[in-house]
């Protein structure tokens, strides 16, 4: 796929051009990597909801599944370990939804994925792979969606983007989701984040309006 970025060197400066975005940058390192999918066309939320065909999970079981998730692409200027955001764009068509009710619910970036039991092939400019570990400490439960707080998202990438999350089932209609700060495959590189949360503890999201 054609990536519509042009970078020219002129008068000792870098000219960054993408569609109608044009920026003049000083000589610096340019980094392009996948970022949290909550910025386009406008940032209205920090949550991502992925819907998938419902899976039934046995009592006191741990199920590991792979889902696809949408990505956006971030362009950063880097100098002396200091980072500035140059541009964010996507090849995907974003869609938003409401998780919960109109009074107390949360707006989420929405995405549909099939369920996979091994790392699926993805279109690397549009999607990444989410490894989701579902821990069920109670009775039978049916799960057909996961809602994640993208401010705590930890993306790693190589040929494709990936992240790792856990879903702890609290009841038939509620669960707690958190990101794990580890690559799903050894050797993946950590992506520069738009929203940096050093402390993942306490950044859990409680899904209290249903799991399917």
């Amino acid at each position: 796929m054609f990536v519509p970025i042009k970078l020219e060197r002129k008068n000792g400066r870098l000219i960054y051009v993408r569609d109608d975005v044009r920026k003049i940058l000083p000589e610096c390192e340019i980094v392009v990597n996948p970022v949290e999918p909550i910025n386009l066309p406008k940032n209205v939320t920090k949550y991502l909801e992925i819907d998938f065909p419902p899976i039934l999970i046995k009592p006191n079981a741990v199920e590991t599944i792979y889902l696809k998730f949408p990505i956006e692409i971030g362009v950063f200027a880097k100098h002396d370990d200091k980072i500035a955001v140059v541009d964010v764009f996507t090849f995907d068509k974003p869609k938003y939804t409401l998780y919960g009710n109109p009074k107390n619910g949360v707006v989420c970036r929405w995405f549909w994925s099939e369920v996979y039991y091994e790392i699926p092939e993805v279109d690397p400019l549009r999607e990444g792979v989410l490894k989701l570990v579902v821990r069920n400490g109670g009775d039978w439960v049916e799960v057909g969606k996961v809602v994640l707080d993208c401010h705590a998202m930890k993306i790693y990438y190589s040929e494709f983007a990936s992240c790792w999350a856990e879903m702890k089932i609290l009841s038939r209609i509620s669960a707690e989701t958190t990101f794990i700060d580890k690559p799903i495959v050894e050797g993946m590189k950590k992506a520069i984040e738009l929203y940096t949360t050093r402390r993942l503890i306490g950044r859990a999201f409680t899904m209290e309006w249903g799991l399917k």
Partner: peptide
Amino acid sequence: DEHPFALKNP
């Protein structure tokens, strides 16, 4: 369906 901010749900 094509508009990003026309919510899927409700």
